[in-house]
Design a binder for these strands. Structure first.
Lengths: 132, 132
DNA sequence: GACAAATGATACTAAAGTGGTATCCTTAGG
DNA sequence: CCTAAGGATACCACTTTAGTATCATTTGTC
């Protein structure tokens, strides 16, 4: 029942670290050492962030990662969706089957509104804003 | 990323069914047939609800379950906690280790407030209220 | 141009959580 | 005392999440 999983969590930290070193190029090894994470794992995260154009990478010797937009343009919700898929509280148990309560499933309706509340809360949160 | 899992979902439906038949005694078989669930599974759910004193059971021949409080006294949040444990969005990745960001983990702080929002939303929701 | 240091891609493994099943024991009405 | 019920508990399968390993590709430096 976590809202944030480890991938997202690590990603946020990695982004902060890389942003703070900008415009220096930061290697996986450096991120790994500073955040104390297993290397192959953080590498995968950095790759995903690169594909999403949040980081840019340079290959080859002396290669590494830099931040490619200001923290104020990186939304927490986007990161969550990147690493965890769509935020949906009602992956309802009955999506496939015909719900015995179909049409007036009061539980689903209520959960849906809570989901909307959360997404709205998250929507405006940028990484910059997280730092205050 | 479900807020509600199947156990809770089924529990709500079972409770509604049993409440509506009150004061009749309802057997597992009947619940199973009406909700279309595998018997051993719904049995486990009904047992948990009985332990939680939401249902009362009578054993032996002609035994079964009845509702033991009005729907207005059954809170959705309690059911969720019963079947899913504590609602916590920040089972933070770093609870055990020393968090590199300890003390100023902005992510955790923010998620915590969202968690509180959700719990507050849920807190007042009784099964009766769900039906409108 | 070769080497080494870096990322890219991808496939695999392990652990935990969730959904579901099976079995044996106990109780109590007829 | 038999049978139809719930109580307890152990087990299995599937999915998700966390983490590992490996090989290929790129590129700066000597």
């Amino acid at each position: 029942m976590k809202l944030i999983n480890k991938n997202t969590d690590y990603a946020v930290q990695a982004i902060y670290y890389i942003a703070q070193k900008s415009p220096d190029i930061v290697s996986t090894v450096e991120v790994e050492e500073k955040l104390g994470l297993p290397r192959p794992f953080i590498r995968k995260i950095l790759q995903i962030l690169t594909k999403a154009e949040i980081l840019s990478s340079s290959k080859g010797n002396k290669g590494g990662f830099t931040i490619s937009r200001p923290l104020s343009d990186i939304y927490l919700l986007d990161l969550m969706q990147l690493f965890q898929g769509r935020i949906a509280f009602t992956d309802c148990s009955f999506q496939k089957k015909v719900c015995p309560n179909a049409g007036h499933c009061p539980l689903r309706r209520r959960i849906k509104t809570i989901e909307e509340t959360v997404i709205n809360e998250l929507k405006g949160v940028t990484l910059k804003e997280l730092l205050n």
